[in-house]
């Protein structure tokens, strides 16, 4: 290792420079202009806005949710349910048995009110209706729940049935009460359906309570479930419907892939016609696709 070279008096020389350098620094600090630009203090905007994504789509599997559209937006939905999974591989687990397909368009007239029209394969039912959000759960908790009402009318357009026009009509209304707790959402939906024409001793009015839950696994995936018990008189040989779904947000679409007991769409027809029991293995595959188009902007 090389030996360090020591210059006599060097330490004293450096110390003699230190004091003037410090003094120069102090003087410059005091004399030089402050180059810091005066800025406004940055403050976040306090907002009390509706909670996002209480549910991811306007319909879970078969039950409408409190979700509504922003003014000027158009929502399109395509819903499919196939045959029972227990039909086996010969029927490709129900996929060969034909789908009951429902197509629906909803347009938001305001941020709280949307109206739309839909049509499904079974009974060629065309329905028109609307949804109005009375309350919106807010981020600050100033409004703790979502409250919405839905009303619709269905028309059986099957040809050659011999039905008069009035006999083809059915009516439905429901109240949707929901709350999102962090990643978990719960909705209770008391509902009533009226059919102008019924078969045999079936009641012309049906009462139900839809229960819908949603649990967000990630920003892109959520598990949801629904159960629709019918109370009081019910149609012969019908059972309470149930469904389990995986919701996938692709960034533009919401896909719902599910197993459900009912092949019917729309709550009134699910209550009236579901003859399958989910927990007995009577379930079928289905999928829904939802897409919102920003027409207004």
């Amino acid at each position: 290792m090389p030996k360090p070279v020591i210059i006599p008096g060097a330490g004293r020389f450096m110390r003699s420079l230190l004091a003037p350098a410090l003094l120069l620094g102090i003087v410059l600090t005091l004399v030089m202009p402050d180059r810091t630009v005066a800025q406004l203090p940055r403050e976040r905007v306090e907002t009390d806005e509706p909670v996002d994504n209480v549910f991811w789509a306007m319909t879970n599997v078969g039950i409408s949710t409190v979700r509504n559209l922003s003014e000027g937006n158009l929502n399109s939905s395509v819903l499919h349910t196939f045959g029972l999974v227990d039909r086996g591989i010969e029927h490709l687990y129900g996929l060969d048995d034909g789908a009951n397909t429902r197509i629906r368009l909803d347009y938001a007239i305001s941020d709280r009110f949307s109206a739309g029209v839909g049509r499904m394969t079974f009974n060629k039912v065309v329905d028109i209706g609307g949804k109005y959000n009375i309350l919106r759960q807010t981020t600050t908790g100033s409004i703790p729940v979502e409250l919405a009402v839905k009303a619709s009318m269905g028309i059986n357009t099957m040809p050659n049935t011999g039905y008069r026009f009035s006999e083809r009509l059915s009516y439905f209304t429901s109240v949707m009460i929901a709350r999102k707790f962090n990643s978990f959402s719960l909705q209770l939906t008391p509902m009533i359906a009226h059919f102008n024409r019924t078969v045999g001793d079936n009641p012309d009015q049906l009462f139900g309570l839809g229960i819908v839950t949603n649990y967000e696994l990630t920003d892109r995936l959520a598990l949801s479930a629904e159960y629709l018990p019918v109370f009081g008189d019910r149609n012969a040989n019908t059972h309470d419907a149930m469904a389990l779904a995986l919701n996938i947000d692709t960034g533009g679409h919401i896909f719902q892939i599910f197993f459900t007991s009912s092949q019917w769409h729309n709550e009134e027809f699910i209550m009236a016609n579901n003859r399958d029991r989910f927990w007995k293995g009577d379930f079928r595959f289905g999928f829904n696709i939802h897409r919102v188009f920003g027409i207004g902007r």
């Binding site: 630009v37 005066a38 800025q39 406004l40 940055r42 403050e43 976040r44 905007v45 907002t47 996002d52 994504n53 991811w56 922003s70 003014e71 000027g72 937006n73 920003d219 947000d249 919401i254 919102v292 920003g294 207004g296 902007r297």
Partner: peptide, 25 residues
């Protein structure tokens, strides 16, 4: 600030809205 010749603007990005809440998220 014309006297000091300073322009200073900021936007809280959380206040931006596109009309579709999922797109906002």
């Amino acid at each position: 600030d014309f006297h000091e010749n300073v322009i200073d603007f900021y936007l809280d990005l959380n206040t931006l809205r596109t009309g579709i809440d999922r797109r906002d998220r």
